[in-house]
Design a binder for these strands. Sequence first.
DNA 1: GCGCCACTGTCAATGCCATTGACAGGTGCG
DNA 2: CGCACCTGTCAATGGCATTGACAGTGGCGC
Lengths: 224, 224
Amino acid sequence: MTLTRESILEAALRLCSPEGGGQLTFSRLGKELGADPTAVYRHFRDKDELVLALTDLVIQEGIELARQTLPDGPSDDWRAWLAVTAHSVRTSHLARPALAVLAAARTTASPAETHSVEQLISVLHRAGLPVIEAAECYRALLDMTLAMTQYTAAFSILDRQAQEQDEAAWAVKYGMLPEDEFPLLHRSAPRLTELFRDDDTVFALVLDTFLDGVAVRIGRAGEA
Amino acid sequence: MTLTRESILEAALRLCSPEGGGQLTFSRLGKELGADPTAVYRHFRDKDELVLALTDLVIQEGIELARQTLPDGPSDDWRAWLAVTAHSVRTSHLARPALAVLAAARTTASPAETHSVEQLISVLHRAGLPVIEAAECYRALLDMTLAMTQYTAAFSILDRQAQEQDEAAWAVKYGMLPEDEFPLLHRSAPRLTELFRDDDTVFALVLDTFLDGVAVRIGRAGEA
DNA sequence: GCGCCACTGTCAATGCCATTGACAGGTGCG
DNA sequence: CGCACCTGTCAATGGCATTGACAGTGGCGC
């Protein structure tokens, strides 16, 4: 029944999943492991270190997920490459919303991802972007993806009450728009309501528009 | 010396500013007000309600900021309109990072912003986008902006130690890249290091690319 | 002017959280 | 055999939001 780094990480990941209760605390972790909560301190200096280790696992999982979808060798379909990467990162994080929230803004310089990044930049470079610009583009895409994912995760962690409260507020707001004062808003209200808690669709929208923008940049680089 | 809703909100905003110490707690708030911490409960049911009220103020401030920069009447420069709006929202939130973090994922259906949204959609509609698509675009832009802003805010709240730890990890990582294995990454390392904690630049990059994408959509709508 | 009530601030207590220091059993190595 | 280390336990600390009991204070009808 002795704890190991691995068994702890595993249990912690379980707790962070939506079914796991949604909150990662030492006492819950202790219960999950059938051990005293403070036993974890023998393996991780503090919660931060634990979170960092967990984040690393999730990143690797995301990379793995992307690898499964993407071809092994270099591909010239930069758009698919970027889209798949972004969605993989998002999916693996959303599988543990509680962790995504805790990991907010912490950047683990995981060695595992280095290779992926090189590939990503390479794809963009071969598409016609100068190296530096390709790197900037990778950075922008990843930051945007992580930010939006954590945003979604944060909401999914809230208790029902707060969620319903927000939703009700929006419904009222969009239902009562005087047509003469807000004609356009009035016409788009149904769509906006649909979009209200469909963060996935909104993300897809942002990603798609972003990629259109990247295409423009690639075009500009080509003609120069 | 009696507390009012206004004096409390004011003090709370002060605490949320970077100079204010970075954390909003009832005990700090009590100290700031020269009153018992629990006195605040006479004016706000719980912390959540307080945060929602504060968020509302910040939103109004953002709208005001945008209004100062933008022309009064309708303009046809949709790009400037969107960019100014996004930057205003970001700036007003970043003035109180601690609040931005707390407000994550809470959407106050503030009546104050309705007019702004109508204008935004109108600008996009006149640029050539169908109404629904214009609304989607507004939603995408705002979500992206809020998400990235809260991402930045979350980092700026971290204690020095964590920040430096992250930065050191990155520096090591990018300094030790074997040139033969990661040729592109090696060449872009300086730029990526520059970008490391310059979230503003990264945001500008994302926004710019996103707007390029919007331009593409407007073009497509025009030719159809 | 008297009494009542709603409002507002105070105080002490509760329960959850991360973290720490003292302690104890065990294991392996000299 | 004995000693250090590893690992788990236990009790305690300090920060946090929140609650319930209590008290002063103002205004209102009578």
